[in-house]
């Protein structure tokens, strides 16, 4: 089962894609993914219900978040009301180690995304700030990467023993599914996804060409 773990809709300030159009696009273009996770910037969208769309198109649609820390951006899977009260998702100066620790305490998973990117990627900051504690998973394939950003992520993840996930980081419809994550088990809910991530049963895949 393949899920794009990093997508944005019009709920994000720089997102331009409607979720319905993502679904139409995946089906009409035979994009090789079975679903996607909406990871809106600096927030968690509790309100939107995409279950009818998911059923109509036969796709898994889940919701996570993308928060911002001193080490750059971080995907969060398994967000609950309690977790959003534990720290302020809207801040751009969260502490990565606190985010990881708090997520774990709430049964969620935090994974730095596009870590090879200047400024907003974790490995741009490790020389100055040191290797942060608690990181287990990083995004090694990102659909928006330029130059050798993915390679920096892959090399550093390998050196530090991190597991790798993939996501398109799509902000417009036609960019969904460029990168994704393959799971050995069926993923139907956020609980399934968090369980698979915690178990390390996945691998990053890329469809960029």
């Amino acid at each position: 089962m393949i899920l794009d773990l990093h997508t944005h809709s019009i709920k994000s300030d720089d997102g331009r894609a409607k979720v319905e159009n993502y679904c139409q696009w995946i089906r009409s273009k035979d994009v090789p993914i079975d679903g996607f996770v909406l990871t809106e910037h600096r927030q968690h969208d509790f309100e939107s219900d995409y279950s009818a769309l998911a059923e109509k198109h036969g796709l898994v649609i889940l919701k996570g978040s993308e928060v911002e820390t001193e080490y750059g951006h971080v995907l969060v899977f398994g967000v609950t009301e309690a977790l959003t009260q534990a720290f302020d998702f809207s801040r751009i100066d969260l502490q990565l180690e606190m985010v990881i620790e708090t997520c774990e305490a709430h049964g969620a998973v935090a994974a730095p995304c596009h870590p090879g990117r200047p400024r907003v990627g974790m490995f741009a900051h490790t020389e100055e700030l040191g290797i942060p504690k608690g990181v287990k998973i990083v995004e090694i394939y990102n659909g928006g990467s330029r130059d050798n950003e993915d390679q920096i992520a892959i090399d550093n993840a390998e050196e530090l023993g991190y597991l790798g996930i993939g996501g398109s980081d799509s902000h417009i419809v036609s960019h969904i599914g460029r990168c994704a994550t393959e799971f050995s088990e069926d993923i139907r809910s956020m609980d399934d996804l968090v369980g698979a991530l915690q178990a390390g049963e996945f691998k990053a895949v890329t469809f960029k060409h």
Binding site: R16, G144, R146, D147, K208, H209
Partner: peptide
């Protein structure tokens, strides 16, 4: 030329 997205939009 490297296939990198420089600008996107709608």
């Amino acid at each position: 030329e490297k296939g990198e997205t420089r600008v996107f939009g709608t």
